[in-house]
Design a binder for these strands. Sequence first.
DNA 1: TTGTAGGCGTTATCAC
DNA 2: GTGATAACGCCTACAA
Lengths: 343, 343
Amino acid sequence: MEQITIKEVAKLCGVGVSTVSRAINNHPDINPETKQKILDTIREYNYVPNNSARNLKRTDSNTIAVVIKEISNSYWGVMLHVLEREVRDRKYCLVLQNVADDEDEVELALQLEKEKKVKGIIFLGGMYNYDESRLRMLRVPYVISGSGKTVPEDTGTYPKSALVTTDTEIESQSMVDYLCSCGHKRIAFITSGDEGLGRCHLNGYKRSLEKNGLEYDEKLIIRLKPGKRIYTIENGYNCTCELLKSGVDFSCIYAISDTLAVGACRAVIDSGKRVPEDYCVAGADGQDIAEYYHPSITTLKYPRVEIALQSVRTLFDLINRKKVVKRQILGGTLIERESTRKL
Amino acid sequence: MEQITIKEVAKLCGVGVSTVSRAINNHPDINPETKQKILDTIREYNYVPNNSARNLKRTDSNTIAVVIKEISNSYWGVMLHVLEREVRDRKYCLVLQNVADDEDEVELALQLEKEKKVKGIIFLGGMYNYDESRLRMLRVPYVISGSGKTVPEDTGTYPKSALVTTDTEIESQSMVDYLCSCGHKRIAFITSGDEGLGRCHLNGYKRSLEKNGLEYDEKLIIRLKPGKRIYTIENGYNCTCELLKSGVDFSCIYAISDTLAVGACRAVIDSGKRVPEDYCVAGADGQDIAEYYHPSITTLKYPRVEIALQSVRTLFDLINRKKVVKRQILGGTLIERESTRKL
DNA sequence: TTGTAGGCGTTATCAC
DNA sequence: GTGATAACGCCTACAA
C-alpha cells in the first residue's frame, strides 16, 4: 500500500488538485456534490494530508507547543490536563516537547517554531538559566509558566512574552516562617542542588532564618544532585534516612516538593518515630498526595490550575495582540495539615 | 528579524545551496574550510533548518512517536522517562502525542506517520477498541505497550507490530485470589467503567470469585465513569466514602490503580476506621506511592520499566527487520504490604 | 465553479 | 568538491 497524495485523489475523482484542496479545507466555492464525492474517495482510499507539506506552505498552523522540563514529573499532571483542554476548546492542536535535564529548552523551542509553525509556546518548568539572546530569536509569542524569574523586555510593537508563576523564594520563605512560628529552631531542608529553582528555595529558607534570628547550619541542608528525576518519593525517603542516621539534631523537615515530603514521612515512620510528634514534615507544591497521605502533609499549595489557565489565556492574548500583564505572580496557599504541629 | 533560509546562507557564503546542505548534514564530500565557514555563518545568522521541508524530502527522520492515552496520568511517569532515555541513546528523537479520552489514537498515529515521517510508534495505554483496518494502514512498525489485548496478524514479509504488556485479566484475578485466600468474602471493587481495561479487570475479578466459590454482588462494584482523569486519588476517596456510607457490607476494597487505592485508604481512615484492621485495601499497578504510603499498600507491581524497555527494543527490532516476539506478556508481582491481612 | 502553474525550503542526483 | 536543478506534497493566485 503506497502513500496516496492529493494528486492521486484528484485523478481518482477526475478533478484538479485545487478542488480537492478546497474540499479538504472547507472552502466555500465548491460544488457540494463534487465535495461529497471527493470526501468519499478520501475516506475510501484513506488519504491523509501531509502536514509537513502543509506547514511549508501555510502561515498559520493553529498549533501550540508546550515545552516541558522533565515530563515524567507528576507535578505537571493537572497542568497538562488543563492546557490540553483549553487549547482544544480554542480549536488548536497541542504538541508536547519534553526537554531532558541536559537539553536546552530554548533551542528546542526554536526548532519547534520553524518546524511546526507553532502559533505560540508555553514553557513548563526550567527557564531559569536561559540564553536571553536566543530567547529573543523566538518570533512567536510565548509564556513562561510555573517557573522562572523574569521574561525579556519587549522590543517590538507588541508584547511577545509573559510570565505566569509563583514566587518560589517568597513561598519558601513563608513556609519556613510558619515552621519557625511553630517553635522549630532546627529545620532540615531538602532541596534541589541546581542553580535555578533550588537556589530560589534556598534563598527563601535563608532569608526566613535570618528574619527569625536563627542560625543557618549547612549540615541541615540536603541538596539533591541535579540529574534525572529529582522529585521522586524515593529520593525523599533515602536522604531522610541518611539524615536520621547522621545524628544531626533537628525537629522538622521541609522538602521543596510534596513527593519528597512523602518520602521523608515514610522514612521517619520506618525509623520508629512519629510524624508530627517526633518530627514535623512539610512539603511544597500542593499535589493531591499531600492531602491524602496519612498523616496529611502541610504544604504550600501552588495554584497550578490557575497558573495553567492564566498561561493559556495570556498566550492567546499575546497571539491576538492584546495587552497583557507581563509578570503574573500568583500566590500559593499555606495549608496546615497533620504532619506539623506547634512545639 | 526575518526567516533566514538555506538559500540566503548560501548567498552569504558565496556557495551553492547543496554545499550548505552538505555542511549541515555532515556529508563527507566537503572541504573542511568551506564547511567551517558555512557553520560560522549559520551560527552568526541563527539559521535553523526548516524541518517541515526536510521531512517533506527526507525518507527517514529518525524520530519515534509515543502516543499516550491521557498523558496526565502519573502512571506513565517512569515509562516516559525510560522511553526518552532509550530513544535518545539510539540517536533518535521522540515526539509525544497525547490522546484525549474522546480521541482516536490510531487516527492520530496515522497523522504522525505522514507528517513527521516517524520511523516507529509506541502506543501507551488505550488500544482496546481500535479499528483494525485503520491500524493496518500504518506502514511504520509499532508496539502496543502496557495495554491492549492483541495486535493484528502480519500480512507483509516482515512483522510490523508487537505487543508488550501485562495480562490485566489474569493479574486482577490473582489479586482477588489472594484476597480470597486472606479470608475475604465480600470484596468491593473499584474499576473503570469502560469496555477496555475496566472490562478486563472486571472479568478477572469475576473469574476469581467463581473459582473461589463466592457470590458476585453488583452492589460491591464501583464503576468510575469513563471521561477525563479517572485514576485520581480524589476519585478513589470519593467513591469509597460513598461506599462506606451506603451501608453495603464488605471487608476489603480492591482498586485497579494505586492512586485509587490511596484515596480508598484515606477514606477509610477519615471514617474513623483502620486499614487493615477494619478494612483491607489493595491496589494495582505498582506506583511508588503504594510502597511509601502509610500503611503501605498491597499491590500488583507491573513491570513498567521492563515493559518500556522491551517496547523500545522490540520497536527497534521491528525497524531493523529482525524477528520479534509478537506478544510479550510480562507478569506482575503481587506485593503484600501493610494494607492487607489475613482475617 | 474549476483547473493550471508556481512556489514554500530542503535534499538528492546529476553533471562539472 | 561543488553547483544547478528536479523533486517532495500541498496551497493559492490567476485564468478559464
